[in-house]
Nucleic acid binder design. Structure first.
Lengths: 286, 286
DNA sequence: GCGTCTCCATACCGTCAGGGTATGGCCCGC
DNA sequence: GCGGGCCATACCCTGACGGTATGGAGACGC
């Protein structure tokens, strides 16, 4: 099976229409029909059910659609990784969303710089959804991710710190003066809480603006405290799901530079967690 | 990147000699040279360092070699899985080594047969090393594996039961009468213990023959008790590494039949473990 | 019920990518 | 210095892949 065939197959599987798929691929429809037929012949399996009104996937087609997505993803990743490995200056590309480092990054970078295997670290600041994608498609080597909010299949990971939740709210909120709250307290209040309400809002600035306006209470990992606007207050949430900040990189990666970075980060995280501590950290890392 | 190019690249990367690689691929040497050059041009990266005496991989080449192996593996798996999905009768292929089911298989199969989503189950009896490979390359859907002895990357897994170790030895062995032993007891005896000694022997019949001859004491999961020769005795090992018998299948598989099988197996395992119990099981599954 | 529209398959043709053979250039060992 | 091993280049040829034109089958409107 050639990747060209898989690309063609995927296009048809997504469009469920040979004509549109062909246009998308920039070829004419007959060669596409033929390519798919040839693929079916070679596999000895019917991939599409053709009726004169449109096309649908057979069970075998469904299977191949998933496999093809995996393979094509692996191919683009391989291209990107090989290209980057060929650059004169080896670099480590680290993907993270703004504030997604749990406050660890400055120390980690400083410690890493002294490591014998260290290479230059390039930061790829990106949105929440992009982080994992950048690593999967080979644009980045490693990313700060948050568990349990992200799908970690295909990644090796190193947990760095466990963060409890804080509720971020305007200082005029009735719970703003509390030492700590429980989720039930937040739910008893009429102000809705993110991300349960408005999960579609992912931009931090927008979110904080809504919080400042008293339209929402944001439940977030406690490391946001450091960056939160002056007009907002943070109240620890005792029973929120703890968030694990972790480093994730492609399974089976073999790179001294990356190994050194991960190890350094883990050491820094352990030191910070013991030193500064946070009100749940210690119990979790024992 | 076409898979053909990756196949060619892999051949050269393994042979480190264009002529031999070409012969292995069944083509002449010049087209192979050109194909690699074209790949290098397209990637914009040098993959091989050519000296007139042989060839070596550049760092970028090393990266691509790993990626190519992943991709080509995924392609052969995709082919096999798609073909099997196209068969008239859907089937579930289960890979296991003889005795590798921890004694659970008969009950699991019986329970699964009554499940509404059940399909025919085909057993692929194979050697120790083949089990994982069969699942990885798409020949089997799911396998019984043993943790921590196997590399589970790329698999989703369901642990079924935790087994302590037993020492299998001839009845004339000085420790044969003991209620239980520790590893230190075994080490104090002159008879070497497998798998520390002779790890290259993997055939159970050979192994048991050696045990019967008093040449070796075999430390194995306790479920071997059921199948062990009459002339051998099994003594529980208190401090051996416990073995987890688990089901493993490719990450992200989406199949009702498989899901039903895994679920059934987990239920059967839980039931058996509570009912029959084994001298370590209960504590481990709480 | 017939024309028409949509959509996939078939027929046929041209081009270029990929494979083959012959040969050159380089380096090493004898 | 000569032969041999090994990769690159030159040149040719075949066939795979893409394009255009057209056929055929079902759905829909009137």
């Amino acid at each position: 099976m050639e990747t060209r065939e898989l690309t063609y197959f995927t296009a048809v599987a997504e469009e469920l229409n040979f004509g549109r798929a062909a246009r998308r691929l920039g070829i004419a429809q007959p060669p596409l029909s033929r390519a798919i037929q040839q693929l079916e012949r070679r596999l000895g399996v019917r991939l599409f059910e053709r009726s004169s009104r449109g096309v649908s996937l057979t069970p075998a087609g469904e299977v191949l659609a998933r496999e093809a997505a995996k393979i094509l993803g692996a191919v683009t990743a391989a291209t990107a990784r090989t290209r980057r490995a060929g650059l004169a200056e080896p670099r480590l590309v680290l993907a993270l969303k703004p504030g997604g480092d749990g406050g660890l990054l400055p120390d980690v970078l400083a410690a890493y710089r002294t490591h014998p295997d260290a290479v230059a670290v390039e930061l790829a600041l990106c949105g929440v959804a992009e982080r994992a994608r950048l690593v999967r498609d080979g644009t980045a080597d490693v990313a700060f991710l948050h568990s349990p909010y992200e799908d970690l299949t295909g990644f090796d990971t190193e947990p760095l710190r466990v963060e409890a939740g804080v509720a971020v709210m305007t200082s005029r909120h009735p719970l703003a003066g509390r030492e700590h709250v429980r989720l039930a307290d937040l739910d008893a209040d009429p102000t809705p809480r993110w991300p349960r309400a408005h999960p579609e809002v992912t931009d931090p600035a927008t979110l904080m603006q809504l919080a400042a306006l008293g339209r929402v209470v944001v439940v977030a990992p406690e490391s946001v405290r450091e960056q939160v606007r002056r007009d907002l207050v943070c109240v620890p949430v005792l029973d929120g799901t703890p968030t694990t900040v972790l480093l994730a990189w492609p399974e089976g990666t073999r790179s001294r530079a990356l190994a050194a970075f991960v190890r350094t980060a883990a050491e820094v995280a352990a030191r910070v967690s013991v030193g500064a501590g946070t009100f749940r950290d210690r119990s979790h890392r024992e």
